[in-house]
């Protein structure tokens, strides 16, 4: 492991530890739950950052896996009455869904724009489907799917093996913080290794990578499935701070997600996380100002970002920092 990578991982762990120790003490309950939602969305942004920024696969429907993770968690937690089983199931379902969808797309040699269209369509189909499950007949075991109301009785995480000991919002916040840190570290390590380097090479030039003997389909399927798993984890965290409902699949989230990644910086891992925090903070603040329209603010923010720093916040900052030190950055 290089020194730089070691340092980045150490900083990530330190920040997570600091956030876990300090924020639950200083934030009011409502703010803390809100912060957990922010973190869930940051995990979701990281998943798109990995697929799109690193892998070059523009998935417009990353929310499909986010929603599937959330729903799988809620349904499994209600049925098993213990989140110990619900969490692995909720990771497995979106991963398998991403693998199945990815298999048809990549082995069918479907390229860029069509991948965007297909993923968007899948998430919209799921959105419509989840919305149409209002009747009593739409239940999986004990869990009613609830149509457009979703599943308001989504159970909280519990101490493994002890279903009665559900976690407090403070504890769930801490779980979310470490889940984000873990995903970030995992993605960092992956990128530094052979698999990650090949994925980047395929993004840069798929033909050349294949002419050097790499089966691009396999690598794309791998990164896409991993992105599905991380989006599913985001769904679990979201389900624990709000509750699952069809909006998880909605265009509202899939659109915002792309904005977070674009504003934060494509091609980096930290960028999407920062983008998610920053843009959510701005839109949340705008929502509390009666004279401001959060969507208009979001639009203006996106335009400014695209015009002012087309590479995104983090790469632009790094470039500026490099220039100040007189270093030519790659």
């Amino acid at each position: 492991m290089s020194r730089k990578l070691f340092l980045e991982i150490a900083i990530a762990l330190f920040l997570a530890l600091a956030a876990a120790l300090v924020l639950p003490r200083v934030l009011a309950l409502f703010a803390l739950i809100n912060a957990t939602v922010f973190i869930a969305m940051a995990v979701l942004a990281l998943s798109l950052g990995l697929i799109w920024g690193v892998g070059g696969i523009l998935s417009f429907g990353q929310t499909a896996f986010f929603g599937l993770g959330g729903y799988a968690y809620a349904v499994a937690a209600i049925n098993f009455n213990d989140s110990l089983y619900a969490v692995p199931i909720a990771l497995l379902v979106p991963t398998l869904a991403a693998a199945a969808l990815g298999y048809f797309m990549f082995y069918g040699r479907i390229s860029d724009v069509y991948v965007g269209a297909i993923t968007l369509t899948v998430s919209l189909i799921l959105f419509n489907f989840a919305n149409s499950t209002a009747g009593e007949e739409w239940r999986i075991g004990e869990a009613p799917l609830g149509g457009f109301n979703g599943i308001p009785s989504t159970p909280q995480l519990n101490v493994p093996g002890n279903p009665d000991a559900t976690l407090s919002p403070q504890a769930i916040f801490i779980v979310a913080v470490f889940a984000l840190a873990l995903c970030y570290i995992l993605a960092k390590l992956l990128l530094a290794g052979r698999f990650g380097r090949v994925v980047v090479a395929i993004r840069e030039n798929e033909t050349r990578a294949e002419l050097l003997g790499y089966d691009a389909r396999r690598y794309k399927l791998g990164i896409f499935s991993l992105g599905g798993a991380i989006a599913g984890l985001a769904g679990i965290l979201f389900a624990n701070s709000v509750f699952v409902s069809p909006t998880m699949f909605s265009l509202f989230y899939s659109g915002q997600l792309i904005i977070w990644v674009m504003v934060g910086g494509r091609g980096t891992l930290l960028g999407p996380i920062l983008g998610a925090f920053l843009v959510q903070a701005v839109t949340t603040w705008a929502g509390t100002e009666p004279r401001l329209n959060p969507n208009a603010i979001l639009g203006i923010l996106l335009m400014l970002a695209v015009m002012g720093m087309p590479r995104g916040l983090l790469p632009t900052l790094r470039l500026a920092w490099g220039r100040r030190r007189g270093v030519q950055l790659a």
Binding site: R197, V200, A201, R203, E204, N205, T207, R208, A209, L211, G267, A330
Partner: peptide, 10 residues
């Protein structure tokens, strides 16, 4: 046909 975003060594 190259990997423009990678370094020569990479």
């Amino acid at each position: 046909s190259l990997f423009d975003g990678l370094t020569v060594r990479e």
